[in-house]
Write a protein that binds this DNA or RNA. Structure first.
Lengths: 155, 155
DNA sequence: GCTAATCTTGACTGGAAAGGTCAAGAATAG
DNA sequence: CTATTCTTGACCTTTCCAGTCAAGATTAGC
């Protein structure tokens, strides 16, 4: 059970937007340089975030991506679910109909019942942390704020 | 973020042992038949569970697998960590040294700090559920107890 | 309206991991 | 001795992850 790079990159990119650019559209290359993420890959990631209504975009010069909602209303859980399709397992329920069908134990599956409870709790935990909380932690860790290229985090 | 089949099978197999066989060694084929798991794959899974000191084994006629500890002391978290190597992500910390090294933001990585907190909480949730809790749920769901082959769960 | 900057769309790829299968061997009960 | 059951480790197929790339659409500024 691990978070994919995609999700970690997405969280870092969103943190970056929240922390560095206040409302302004931010271009991919700037984020990629600051957060040390492959720019081409980041494009793909932002498409997912856009589909999930988390960010909006603007093309052309001075374009870029920006948060669609305020940082207080965007949770880690929303991001994780957007990138990974939620917390799932392959027994009795989940998004895949074929998997559900295949599980003979259906509604009476004990492990599924337990895991359902656990995933509800996990989502609650992840929804308790917002982007503004991330930004706050950034302040606490005393990160350097810097709009230019280069690594911001090297003291 | 999904649980692998291996983990789900492991949980079902352990539940099966707890629920159906009281202290007696249970053979793989019986569990596989009841739980509808590929027998060859289950062999492999039990090797992992054995390495994790969760089950013991006995060879020869009337051999099989059995719990090494009482069901009250075996948690879902222990099983998940045994099968999946813990809750991890690929930034700044984790089991892979190279990944840690690669992450330039190191100790000041905000997302890592947040995810560390979340994984601690997740482990706590999973450690709050034991095998005996699973068995209890089995009772509640009024499963048929049956030592012979065949699906036990079809009312 | 031209041009440069920036996102958009979608195809493509190499490698690793998931999800199994199989065969030959070792131990043990009866 | 023999049938049963776990043990070890090699093998295979398919899917997905992580990442690259190219060509096009849109917009700002001159």
């Amino acid at each position: 059970m691990r978070l994919s790079s995609k999700t970690m990159y997405a969280l870092r990119a969103l943190f970056d937007i929240t922390f560095h650019s206040h409302g302004k559209a931010t271009k991919i290359d700037a984020i990629a340089a600051r957060e040390n993420v492959p720019p081409r890959f980041l494009e793909q990631i932002f498409q997912d975030l856009k589909a999930a209504q988390i960010v909006g975009s603007k093309r052309g010069p001075n374009g870029g991506y920006f948060l669609l909602r305020s940082p207080e209303t965007i949770t880690i859980g929303q991001v994780v679910r957007a990138m990974e399709g939620g917390v799932e397992h392959n027994c009795c329920f989940g998004s895949d109909a074929e998997v559900r069908e295949k599980c003979k134990v259906s509604a009476k599956c004990v492990t599924a019942s337990v895991w359902r409870d656990i995933s509800v709790q996990l989502n609650a935990i992840m929804d308790a942390v917002t982007l503004s909380e991330l930004a706050l932690r950034g302040e606490t860790l005393r990160l350097t704020r810097d709009s230019d290229a280069g690594l911001t985090y090297t003291i």
